[in-house]
Amino acid sequence: MAATRYRAPAQGGLRIAALDDLVAIYHRASGITHLAVAPVPELMEAMAGEWRTLDALADAFGLAADERGALIERLEELVATGLVEAA
């Protein structure tokens, strides 16, 4: 079974505005606005327009094995909101 891969919209698929410690994200394709805290934009940038496996993302952020749980949680959350695709 192939590993799950994740993809965020490519450049231009999102509008992002930093507001104090929160970031407002406008998802163009759905017209829905989301509010996120700091790690989310970096995470989405790491997947912008490219399919990435969990391993690749964990490496990109230098995560140890026991930290992958938090990453998975963030990814699932993003998929649930429609900001990130999973396949």
Binding site: I32, H34, A36, V37, G69, E77
Partner: peptide, 11 residues
């Protein structure tokens, strides 16, 4: 925000 806290809220 690991362990159950939300990092994204949809308006």
């Amino acid at each position: 925000g690991a362990a159950g806290a939300a990092a994204v809220v949809s308006i």
